[in-house]
């Protein structure tokens, strides 16, 4: 049984001599949210462009929804939806016309088209803007319209290239929720992002990509846990007594005493923190503050590349300025 919606084997793409995508392979399960996380220029958009048939396939084997990209590109076009990284809206059309145009492009029958347009406009909360020109929408509304457009054809796979780029935290959250909702309805989601929180929040499966290569692939939690311990930072009114109380707990691997707090290395901090708190409270010790720091995806990135996630970007910015 084929349970993968997308399989990619040995994909390469070169712009002239620049190997933008350099021999990557991955699989996306049916119904999951799969993220491509990587810094600028990693090759995310290039991969999406090849997968969505916008760029010719140079080397590699790709199958989407059971269709082979080389021999059945039209079938693939029919089964996917795309939200591009850069805005691709016609400013002289209204919200409704934008969706209408898209529906007609895909030859969706009139009745179905109308129904779905009504439904989607409601879902993305653009009812009041239905007859507004696209040029008069805010950035977030435009993005929502593009997402609605991507869903109009009821795709099996929705490609989202940096879906929340340039949005305020509120709009990002709403779009995340919406993406999750769409996913629950059975749409497989392929998402690219360079926001670590986005990848972390949304995805079942994360693929970290850098300079055209896949660095590591797996569940976010697994990736982070592979790096080692969580650290609990604890402040109490009697640090010494607290230290003695917990030093023999089995789950705790190491405790360091800083001048004003204890740094406790622990496996699976989320699970063990409540027990730790309980033990300390029983001794009548008052906890002033406590927090858990888990390894971040940035730590994962550093671990595998020896660089900070943002370094590249900073270098580029410097180059542009000078």
């Amino acid at each position: 049984m084929e349970t993968y919606e997308i399989t990619v084997e040995g994909l390469r793409y070169q712009y002239g001599k620049n190997k933008a995508v350099n021999d990557i392979s991955f699989k996306v399960k049916k119904g999951e949210i799969f993220s491509f996380l990587g810094p600028n220029g990693a090759g995310k958009t290039t991969t999406i462009n090849v997968l969505t048939t916008l760029l010719p396939i140079q080397k590699g084997k790709i199958s989407i929804s059971g269709f082979d990209l080389r021999t059945q590109p039209d079938e693939i076009r029919k089964s996917i939806g795309i939200v591009f990284q850069n805005e691709t809206l016609d400013w002289n059309l209204t919200v409704e016309e934008t969706l209408e145009f898209h529906g007609r492009l895909y030859a969706i029958p009139k009745k179905t088209r109308k129904d779905r347009i009504n439904e989607l406009i409601q879902i993305v909360k653009l009812e009041e803007k239905r007859d507004e020109f696209v040029k008069n929408l805010s950035g977030g509304m435009k993005r929502k319209l593009e997402i609605a457009r991507g869903l109009l054809t009821r795709p099996k796979v929705l490609f989202l290239d940096e879906p929340t780029i340039g949005l305020d935290p509120n709009s990002r959250m709403r779009i995340w929720n919406y993406i999750k909702r769409v996913n629950k309805e059975g749409v497989t989601i392929f998402l690219t992002t360079h926001y670590m929180d986005e990848a972390d929040q949304l995805s079942d499966n994360i693929c970290i990509i850098d300079r055209g290569k896949i660095i590591v692939n797996g569940f976010s939690e697994v990736l982070k846990q592979s790096l080692g311990m969580d650290v609990i930072y604890l402040k109490t009114d009697q640090d010494e007594k607290a230290f003695k109380t917990i030093k023999n707990m089995r789950e705790i691997k190491n405790i360091r005493k800083a001048p004003s707090e204890l740094m406790i290395s622990v496996e699976d901090g989320q699970k063990n923190m409540p027990r730790l708190i309980e033990q300390i409270r029983i001794q009548g010790i008052e906890i002033k503050s406590i927090y858990l720091k888990k390894p971040t995806l940035d730590d994962v990135f550093i671990h595998y590349t020896g660089r900070h996630f943002r370094e590249e970007e900073q270098e580029k910015k410097k180059k542009i300025i000078t």
């Binding site: 916008l54 996917i80 691709t88 492009l105």
Partner: peptide
């Protein structure tokens, strides 16, 4: 130039 054509080129049209 403004990328609108991507919508058409990625569609079955």
């Amino acid at each position: 130039e403004f990328g609108l054509m991507k919508e058409m080129l990625a569609s079955p049209l």
